Amino acid sequence: MANSQKQKRHCVVINWGLVAYQDAWLRQKSLVTERISNPDLEDILILSEHFPVYTLGTGASTDFLKFDYDESTSAKSDLKREVYRVERGGEVTYHCPGQLVGYPILNLRYYQQDLHWYLRQLEEVIIRTVATYGLNAERISGLTGVWLEGKKIAAIGIKVRRWITMHGFALNVCPDLTGFQDIVPCGIIDKPVGSLNEFIPNLTVAEVRVKLIRSFAEVFNVELENKVD
Rank of each mutant, 00 (worst) to 15 (best):
S4N: 15
F216M: 07
D229R: 03
S48C: 15
T58L: 15
G134Q: 12
L79I: 04
M1R: 04
E42S: 11
G179T: 12
V125A: 03
L212G: 02
L26N: 14
P104Q: 00
V53N: 09
W117R: 09
A154G: 07
N3S: 09
V32W: 06
V13E: 07
E91W: 00
M166F: 11
E138S: 02
I36D: 00
I127K: 09
D176L: 10
R214D: 04
E218Q: 14
V160R: 00
R27I: 15
I44G: 01
F169G: 07
I200W: 00
Y133N: 12
I188A: 07
L31R: 15
L100Y: 07
Y21N: 06
Y94Q: 04
V12K: 15
H95C: 05
L26E: 15
E149G: 09
P175H: 00
N107D: 04
T144H: 01
V222F: 05
R214V: 01
V86G: 05
D23F: 11
I188N: 10
I158T: 13
V83G: 03
H10D: 12
P175E: 00
G187A: 07
L18R: 04
L31K: 15
A2L: 12
E225C: 05
N107S: 02
L79W: 00
L115G: 04
R161S: 14
E225I: 13
L196S: 09
R35A: 06
G98T: 11
R162S: 11
I213T: 05
T33R: 13
D182H: 14
A217G: 14
R35F: 03
V19D: 05
L224P: 11
D229W: 08
V32A: 14
Q121M: 01
W163E: 06
S37N: 14
S141C: 09
Q99G: 03
E124I: 12
G187Y: 04
S215Y: 08
V12H: 15
I183L: 11
N197L: 08
T93K: 03
F216G: 05
P175M: 00
A2M: 10
F220I: 03
N226D: 05
I127G: 04
K151W: 09
A60T: 12
G157I: 00
L171K: 05
R81V: 03
G90D: 11
R85A: 06
E71N: 10
G145D: 01
G187E: 03
E198R: 13
I213K: 11
A131R: 09
V184C: 11
Y69P: 02
T144M: 02
H167V: 03
S74T: 08
I200C: 01
F64Q: 13
S30E: 15
L143R: 12
V13T: 04
T129D: 08
V160H: 03
K80I: 06
T204R: 03
T93H: 08
Y69D: 08
R88K: 09
L143M: 12
K29G: 10
K211G: 07
L171C: 02
